[in-house]
Amino acid sequence: MAHTIANKQKITARVRRIVGQLNGIERAIESEVSCSAVLQQVAAARGALGGLFEELLEDHLRQHVAGAHLSDADRQAGAEELLALIRRYAR
C-alpha cells in the first residue's frame, strides 16, 4: 500500500493509540478490574480497529479500484483484493 505513505503519520498515530488501548486491557486484566470495565475497553479497542480498517479500506478502494489512472486489469485486480479483504474481515 504505497499510497499509505501520504497518511503514514496519521495511520501510525492511530495504530499507536490502539496499541495503548490493548496494553490498557492487559493491565486491567492483570489488576483484576471488573469484567464490565474490561469489556468496555475491549469494545473501544474493537471500534478503533474497525475505524482503522475502514480508513485503509477506503484508501485501497480509491487508489486501487476507482483510480482514474488504472487500467481495467488493475481495477479488476484491486476489486478482487478488496473482496478478499472484506470476506476475511467479516469472519
Rank of each mutant, 00 (worst) to 15 (best):
A2K: 04
H3S: 10
T4L: 13
I5H: 04
A6T: 14
N7L: 13
Q9A: 06
Q9K: 11
K10M: 02
K10L: 07
I11R: 03
I11Q: 09
T12D: 08
R14G: 09
V15A: 01
V15Q: 02
R16G: 04
R16E: 15
R17E: 15
I18N: 03
V19E: 15
G20I: 03
G20S: 06
N23A: 13
R27T: 14
R27S: 14
I29G: 02
I29F: 03
E30M: 01
E30P: 02
E30Q: 13
E32W: 10
E32N: 15
S34K: 08
A37Y: 04
A37R: 07
A37T: 05
V38P: 01
L39P: 03
L39M: 14
Q40P: 00
A43F: 05
A43P: 01
A43V: 02
A44M: 03
A44S: 14
A45K: 03
R46H: 13
R46A: 00
R46M: 07
L49V: 13
L49N: 06
G50K: 09
G50I: 08
F53Y: 12
F53S: 04
F53R: 10
E54V: 12
E54C: 14
E54A: 15
L56E: 08
E58S: 13
H60A: 07
L61N: 06
H64F: 11
V65G: 11
A66P: 00
A66Y: 13
G67V: 02
A68H: 09
H69S: 08
L70W: 08
S71I: 06
D74H: 12
D74P: 08
R75K: 12
R75L: 00
Q76F: 00
G78M: 15
G78S: 03
G78H: 08
A79T: 03
A79M: 08
E81I: 02
L82C: 01
L82H: 07
L82A: 05
L83G: 09
A84T: 06
A84W: 02
A84Y: 05
L85Q: 12
L85G: 12
I86D: 00
I86A: 10
R87S: 05
Y89M: 06
A90C: 10
A90V: 02
